[in-house]
Design a protein around this nucleic acid. Sequence first.
DNA 1: GAAACAAATGTAAGCGGTTGCATTTTTTCG
DNA 2: CGAAAAAATGCAACCGCTTACATTTGTTTC
Lengths: 344, 344
Amino acid sequence: MEENKENLARPTAQDVARLAEVSTATVSRFFSQPGRIRKQTAEKISKAIEVLGYVPDLNARALASRRADVIGAVVPTLENAIFAEGIESMQTWLNKRSITLLVASSNYNPDREYQQVQRLIAHGVAGLLLIGTARHDKTRQLIQARKVPYCLSWCYRSSNDEPQIGFDNYSAGAAMAAEILARGHKRIAVLSGVRDWNDRATDRVQGALDAFAAAGVPVANDALIEVTYNHELAASAMETLLQRHSDLTCIFCANDVVAAGALRQAHIMGRSVPEDISITGFDDIAMAQVLTPALTTVRLRHKLMGELAGERLLEAVELGHKVRPENIPYSIVLRDSLGDCPNS
Amino acid sequence: MEENKENLARPTAQDVARLAEVSTATVSRFFSQPGRIRKQTAEKISKAIEVLGYVPDLNARALASRRADVIGAVVPTLENAIFAEGIESMQTWLNKRSITLLVASSNYNPDREYQQVQRLIAHGVAGLLLIGTARHDKTRQLIQARKVPYCLSWCYRSSNDEPQIGFDNYSAGAAMAAEILARGHKRIAVLSGVRDWNDRATDRVQGALDAFAAAGVPVANDALIEVTYNHELAASAMETLLQRHSDLTCIFCANDVVAAGALRQAHIMGRSVPEDISITGFDDIAMAQVLTPALTTVRLRHKLMGELAGERLLEAVELGHKVRPENIPYSIVLRDSLGDCPNS
DNA sequence: GAAACAAATGTAAGCGGTTGCATTTTTTCG
DNA sequence: CGAAAAAATGCAACCGCTTACATTTGTTTC
């Protein structure tokens, strides 16, 4: 009687078994191998489940079967739309396969990344998605020691032989630089994201820097400013840039958010884009096309990447092999913010 | 010898106990009640943990202690910046307390929301964060039956006595309408989000509609268009609106993304904002201030809300009471996109 | 310094499932 | 129709950790 209170709130497989007049083993098989159960037995069980409102306890299942239907991901932050989008579609993909995605944020901090990886491992994740290549060695060691299948994402460096599915940021940076150079720009500045512990930002900027230098228009040291992922800081950096070099004709921005800030600041300072000065972005987040002028940027298929990473990682987990590296192509989206160099 | 292979990969509390020459109970207490353990014993244990690289199995812990340090949240989508921001800060807050946040997306679909709630319950979450008030009854029943502490978020309706921490969207909609009316606008249109199963969008629009009607400038039926959360659709809806009523002087948008699309379209059609036509947003996402002109909008403290929800929900879980409803104040941010009504 | 009490630790029974192996039931087929 | 093979189900030992209760060790008191 009174013990039913508990049972009502959280019926167990035991309860289901009792009501359906079968053993718990059969109930368990009802879920894991429905084909191996007689139709009439299955109906009894499924009715009992219905009646009791039974929901299997995934913790117990994970413990007993020593595998969890959970994949973990540690992203820098969900506030960055590219990660939010990628994670969202990865999750959607995984959910279709009854896999849960457990997301944690590191806030771009390798120490926190380590903690989060540890937390995810403690939760028994079957696989791990990490962002980029830069991280503490102990983080790698932990993953190695636990033999957790993993995959790096948003990055692709041919020099790196870790499993990775992402974009070749260096070459994409160079490609955008080429577009800029093709329009005759010679006085160029760079608005970078924070590069410390961020290989994506590093590669993007380096790709562009190298391309500019190779074309004989190197970017001066004081024409490169690093800012965190934030409109306002980008705007004030833009102001600084324009004060230092009033003759700039193009700003290469390492991401769209920074570009948006720069665009805004240009407007405030009365420089029209792209007539007086050109600005390019990176990522092609949704916002890029509603800005005025619409942002010329590098399109990265973040959602596709998320899906692909989910698919490949799951495959790797199930088949027990490593994820095969994949370089997802980028493209340059020419909109209005990049124009020909004025006075040339 | 050979069984060590397994042990090396996933050392258990048993292994730690053996190495530290104590019982597993003591190892367990080392984590749960460190104060109750002699210093020298603690040191032996902590050394063993270090040596083995032991990480406790949270699934086993949850099972044995029948409580999990996990809180679940079902959001419509992380692609919407307001949820990404709110969830991010809620997660940060919870992580500080060693609580894991398990996030799932419903894609604005009540059926999927139900599935996700079921999934989270299966994972044994100690508490649940839901968005808004509109959902299937069976979802409510499931939560009720499982006695999972929960909290609605992003909404606050005084008529609703469920635990809720969020914003009074109706009154915020009315407040923005008041600003619009105060500037003399009389030919007003509304660009709404999809209101079906979305109480936030519904309330915002209704609040505005009622305010306009009360002021004697009701919005015509064909001057209200519903669009999904998307720039381009919003832009084309804006075009339709302007075709139907070329004399509109103000567009009330139910969220910033839609407003951005409208702004863009106004620009394309050569209507300058706010001189020819005013546009207002809702949410004050980061983008709002980099648009040109900067968007006048309703500021909602999404991050604060996320933190507060995390704090209160955790408190409710730990103390076993309900979350006390909380109405988080909004404010109107006057920027450039709302101006006086022209020709008046 | 022994009794009395407090603190630290150990013992062992689960938590809610899974699964190898044994057993029972059903189907197949000569 | 009965024996052999196949299919379905049951039994029971875990999975890794927690915790009530028992036991041991340490401390305090007079």
